[in-house]
Nucleic acid binder design. Structure first.
Lengths: 190, 190
DNA sequence: TCCATTTCTTGAACCAGGTCAATTTTTTGG
DNA sequence: CCAAAAAATTGACCTGGTTCAAGAAATGGA
């Protein structure tokens, strides 16, 4: 049970079974229903989420009340507002479950304890952050150097599972184009 | 001399003066002339750079031999290919000095030693990576939700020093539009 | 099961920003 | 200080993708 996190950690650093046993008690395991808002825009952000099962998204809401999707998180991804986590600054970010999901919740206080007990996890979180940072830089590159159609194809080929799991209008938002255009591309057989 | 790094580290974690003294010996200090290529696309990437002075950029070169700027790094920024650093995978990234610069060079071997000696730096690098990751997500957001003109204004207001320091065509590349359009905006008085 | 909501599609008009090519201005290095 | 290269500007034209509006299809809750 709840082993995905331990397995994920072991892909980056080695920990003994005894150490592994100390980890999960600092998390809360949550079953969340589809559409649940885990992080409400405008409130403090004191939790980071590890997705064991299901799919989450983060998004911002602009003046015209339209949501812009920033990130998707499926199995084995971490998601939070890294700019506000554990600070006294309210976060504008929303985090929502797009499917019924199982998440491990780590508060900033628990994270501090966790890192004091198992300093090797500092390396784990560093490697995860550096990997995510790299992916984000690459994403930026695709945004500016590919056309909409190329971007869609690239995403579709890189993450085929995704297309079935998220509504098209959210995918369009994430990839930076309109749902109408996505619909037209698909009609064209792309 | 070379204190910018120590100061930067102390913005994230506390270290004693004695510990601080152990840090710099693991770095190489390099004076690099404008236009020097620090990381050559297509080769292994075994170094990360901390900019004490000057300005670097990272970029990729596409099939048509045009450079796409991914990142700028000025004083107190780290830059490397986080996707290839220390691995046996060649990096496609170029890293180049845009001005005469002073950089601290950290190889992957030195970094390993450094982290063994001063595990608290694991936290430092984690926090730096999380901060950069957050900034990159935000950048993505601006790319999809702002018009070219808004993007330019936002960048100009957020980093006024930059406009003087980098050629316009590189800024245009970084912000995802054409040098021609930037020129026209400026002519219009934006 | 059926109605309400959410999601997706389609058409027509439009425009933000790109492309290409020529010229001018600025920077550089010998 | 000057020639050559690099960078910026300008004009004319064009297109990929948006916008707005209306309808169709799918999903979901009581």
């Amino acid at each position: 049970m709840h082993q995905p996190l331990i397995q994920h950690i072991r892909r980056f650093v080695s920990i003994t079974d005894k150490e592994a046993g100390q980890i999960l008690p600092l998390f809360e395991f949550h079953n969340v229903k589809k559409k649940t808002i885990l992080q409400q825009g405008g409130t403090l952000c004191d939790e980071r989420y590890f997705v064991c099962k299901g799919c989450l998204r983060s998004y911002l809401v602009d003046e015209e009340d339209t949501a812009q999707v920033l990130q998707f998180a499926i199995e084995n991804w971490w998601i939070t507002d890294y700019g506000c986590f554990g600070l006294q600054t309210p976060s504008a970010l929303y985090i929502q479950a797009l499917e019924d999901a199982e998440v491990l919740v780590l508060t900033s206080a628990s994270m501090q304890q966790l890192l004091e007990r198992l300093p090797v996890l500092e390396k784990y979180f560093r490697l995860v952050a550096e990997k995510a940072y790299n992916a984000s830089i690459l994403r930026n590159y695709y945004m500016v150097s590919l056309t909409v159609e190329e971007r869609y194809k690239h995403f579709r080929d890189a993450f085929p599972e995704f297309l079935q799991r998220v509504p098209q209008y959210m995918l369009a938002s994430y990839l930076g184009f309109t749902p109408e255009f996505l619909s037209r591309m698909r009609a064209r057989g792309v």
